[in-house]
Amino acid sequence: MSEQTTSNLTTAGGAPHGAPQASDAPLGRDDLARLVARDIAPGSFVNLGIGQPTLVSNYLTDEQDITLHTENGMLGMGPVATGDEIDPDLINAGKIPVTELPGASYFHHADSFAIMRGGHLDVCVLGAFQVSAGGDLANWHTGAPDAIPAVGGAMDLATGAKDVYVMMTLLTKDGKPKLVPELTYPATGVGCVTRVYTDQAVFLIAADGVRVRETFGITFEELEGLMEVPLIAG
């Protein structure tokens, strides 16, 4: 990441609810993870989905005092385990060996999902195939006839957390926006997504429509031209 991008990101992060702010280039995966991490309120209880959202944990600061939840039964999850720390009884939702932090707790699966389903998590961060303008999420199944479906905890997280942030690229590999008027992939949850972090813009799913909080390497007008979803500036 260039120094130029860093300074623009810092500016954008410092005024998250102002007018859309352009930066020079689309954000890379790590820059996007850093931005999500910065937006999570201090003291939050957070669940990070498998894949790209896991990167967010690399950028949470001690001062934020964030507690990470993993659906397989733990609060206070620490970084990925290495070397002698690796313990097959201590894994995350992606089945990767992790560590425990002081103050951690363990609980069985029904309690763990009560934490998710009961609205106790402040934020969950998920990947997605598509998000609709109304906040519907598709991230569990492509719907392809030969695909073996697997859902895991995606539907519970999507419907249970107070805020659902999605991290994804704005466009598919063939250039189609993944933020769409209506889902074409099978739904994971209905009206559940509150924010969409992409490499080209951050979108807020608001009562009056989809707001563009900031853009990266693209202007608001260019973004409007790219997408079918009506956009609101700021």
Binding site: H109, F113, R117, A150, M155, T159
Partner: peptide, 30 residues
């Protein structure tokens, strides 16, 4: 195929003598 939280709660319900429950998980999905 069962959403993981439904799997856990359906198992819990069996052990607790609960005949069924309503949950938002999965609403509007296949």
């Amino acid at each position: 195929l069962v959403p993981q939280g439904n799997l856990a709660e359906r198992i819990r319900a069996a052990g607790a003598g609960i005949g069924g429950f309503f949950t938002p998980t999965g609403y509007g999905t296949m």
